[in-house]
Design a protein around this nucleic acid. Structure first.
Lengths: 187, 187
DNA sequence: CAAGACTGAATGAACATTCATTCGGAGGTG
DNA sequence: CACCTCCGAATGAATGTTCATTCAGTCTTG
């Protein structure tokens, strides 16, 4: 858009913006190209198809989130504090970029879901998985499938960041604590 | 489909099935009509547009869920038990009808979201809201916006029901308890 | 037989994708 | 330095397809 430098990145960002705002319906390739400030054909010099572009934008978005989250949380800290920092930085990163949150949710509930997860795994392994597997932390978590723990713990952060509600710092601390109460062994 | 009685209902069900399976992309009006076993024009005898059909199918799906859930949970029981029954019946109803779960999620993360909520409110008031507002129960919940409590408590039931993972009864009890731990006042 | 439900081919708009063409600059040549 | 030649990125009008919606006519039912 501004910098005529990386047009592929501009196209990815434009797709993310339009999908977040108007859904896949409202994100035709010509609308995406217009939003990116390039010609209709340009997207196809970088991505073979719309599907490929969607997957690339998903991987980029997810990897930015991973970066934000793993930068802020110290896996050697006590598990409860590690989780709190993780949760809050996930929420804050997405609240600062609500389009990212809404795009992620939309892809993850669409038929792209399976292919997107596959592509994201191929793109980079999830650094979060490694941290969760560490003995200190694993010992304090419920013995449930990772998918379930994810739904209880981190997924609320994404959905709340995508929502309209404005939450105070105190509320966020309370919610992060609530998620920790959900996934950690009681007592 | 089976009964040639209520074609409007058949069309709603067909839309739900196709959207759940293939997303809004894969649910063209002609595909929906074919799935419902009627002609392309027939849907328009009952609904003025595709949007109207989507909203009607959403309202129907949501109201069936409401019915299942409020039948099983006794608002006069102790709050913890009330919640457990509520959570489990929500999960079980949707697990028995995974297309309902996937359809709901897909609508709620699409640009239909706002209009769908509006339509569902107009269609019938949410009996859950009344129960949550009752003093016995409200006193034991965290003082957070309802939207937040919903994300922490009931939303995981829907998403887990939409997922592929098979969960045992013991795991379900554990997860329902985890959600209750999240939204109830600790101590 | 009247009124409505139903049909499915027809319509025009919108879409993803293609491709003949243009553009800008890197490198070679005199 | 001026000039020419390439080359891949970028363009945007054109293409063929698919879609939501319509409607003239057929069938059902009371």
């Amino acid at each position: 858009m501004a910098a005529p430098k990386d047009r592929a990145a501009a196209v990815r960002a434009a797709l993310r913006t339009l999908v977040a705002r108007n859904g896949f319906h409202g994100a035709s390739m010509s609308a995406v190209a217009a939003q990116a400030g390039v010609a209709a054909g340009t997207a196809y010099t970088h991505y073979a198809s719309k599907d490929e572009l969607v997957l690339a934008a998903y991987c980029e978005t997810k990897s930015e989130l991973n970066l934000a989250v793993t930068t802020d949380a110290d896996p050697n800290a006590p598990a409860e504090q590690w989780f709190r920092d993780l949760w809050l930085s996930c929420y804050r990163h997405l609240r600062a970029n609500p389009e990212h949150a809404r795009f992620l949710l939309q892809v993850e509930h669409s038929p792209y879901r399976a292919r997107a997860h596959e592509a994201a795994l191929a793109d980079q392994d999830d650094p979060l998985l490694a941290q969760v597997a560490s003995p200190d932390i694993a010992a304090q978590l419920l013995a449930l499938p990772l998918e379930v723990l994810y739904e209880l713990a981190l997924s609320p952060a994404i959905r709340l960041a995508a929502g309209e509600a404005e939450l105070t710092d105190a509320q966020l601390d309370e919610i992060a604590a609530a998620c920790w109460r959900a996934v950690s062994r009681p007592g």
